[in-house]
Design a protein around this nucleic acid. Structure first.
Lengths: 186, 186
DNA sequence: GGATAACTATGTATAAAGTATATACTAATA
DNA sequence: TATTAGTATATACTTTATACATAGTTATCC
């Protein structure tokens, strides 16, 4: 359960409640992790049962805000996190890109439709790239591990956008019509 | 169910059995999709029920080899695939890297242990890069969509290895000790 | 020739992750 | 004062991923 360790790691910085953990992961780990509240909610409940975190109810009367559940990491949680951190990753990178899966098969469809989808993909990833460029400056004073991770996200984003634009151009220029269309390698 | 469309796409090229589909995805789509046999096996069974593929048992006496189940795409399968191909991807790229998740938290552990894990990661991805460099030449005559996708895989691999090496150097030089260790941004 | 390791081939049970949907309160804004 | 965006949580359901189990084939090593 990898989400578990992401949560335990974040709770090293400070106590948090579920929604804030989700927002943190979305904002700062977005290039290597996607998450939604349902997963956080379930994980926190399980982890409390396991004794890795402890929960404190923050009722509206306490701070004037909405009902929250504030989670802290326990000594047991710190132990398990440290063990995990020092262990070698057992699995490799997991990638799923619904766009690329289409892209590789675009030879079986209409070129104009393919170009439309590619253009939309360029729009999305250029926007993301601009957001990340703006954000990266804020990381300059932070620990190397965190800053370096953000920089990798930016580099992947840049590589992807450049590739998309080059691919779009090659396809628009009609080069795919000359290839051995429909053939595939083993 | 995205796996379904990967399978339907591959069956456009030729009839295949499950193990071969898995190997194909691992070898050629590894940078955009990860998969294991369990998923293929169940997907094919479901897809046969749905009428998207048809199955033909190849018993040992037929070809001397082991028992196989040869799958073909049906007209209904082609229709559904075409519909999917022309649709806009509803979800973005998903990346989950057990190494990067550790990396971002290495500030909470021992630097020497971190360096060991980083070195192992460099070894793994340099090996993968060499394999891909060798493979890419074989794609030169193939349709643009397929070749371009393979090229992106190579570029991502290269970006990752370069980043790993730079990160390793920065960390080995001890720069992470000077940072605001343990602090984290919101 | 026989062991053994690596590869081909499949299947099922279980665990983990991801999505859809629901509720409710707060803050901003038009 | 509506309405929208944002904060906050929870559960049911679906899809995806892993672990384990089986069995035959091919290659290699002694």
């Amino acid at each position: 359960m990898a989400i578990k360790y992401a949560i335990l790691g974040l709770l090293h910085y400070q106590d948090m409640h579920g929604y804030r953990i989700m927002k943190h992961i979305q904002r700062n780990f977005g290039h290597m992790w996607t998450i939604n509240y349902g997963q956080i909610s379930r994980s926190l409940k399980d982890m409390e049962k396991e004794g890795l975190v402890s929960m404190q109810d923050v009722v509206p009367s306490d701070d004037g805000g909405p009902h929250k559940k504030l989670y802290s990491i326990t000594p047991k949680g710190r132990e398990e996190f440290a063990r995990w951190l020092a262990s070698f990753p057992d699995k490799g990178m997991l990638i799923r890109d619904p766009f690329l899966l289409r892209f590789v098969f675009f030879g079986f469809g209409e070129r104009d439709q393919a170009l439309k989808i590619i253009d939309e993909q360029i729009r999305i990833y250029e926007e993301q790239l601009e957001r990340r460029k703006k954000n990266i400056a804020h990381w300059s004073g932070y620990p190397d591990y965190v800053r370096l991770t953000a920089e990798l996200g930016l580099q992947f984003n840049r590589t992807y956008v450049n590739w998309l634009k080059r691919a779009r151009k090659e396809i628009a220029d009609g080069r795919e019509e000359k290839g051995k269309k429909g053939k595939e390698k083993e």
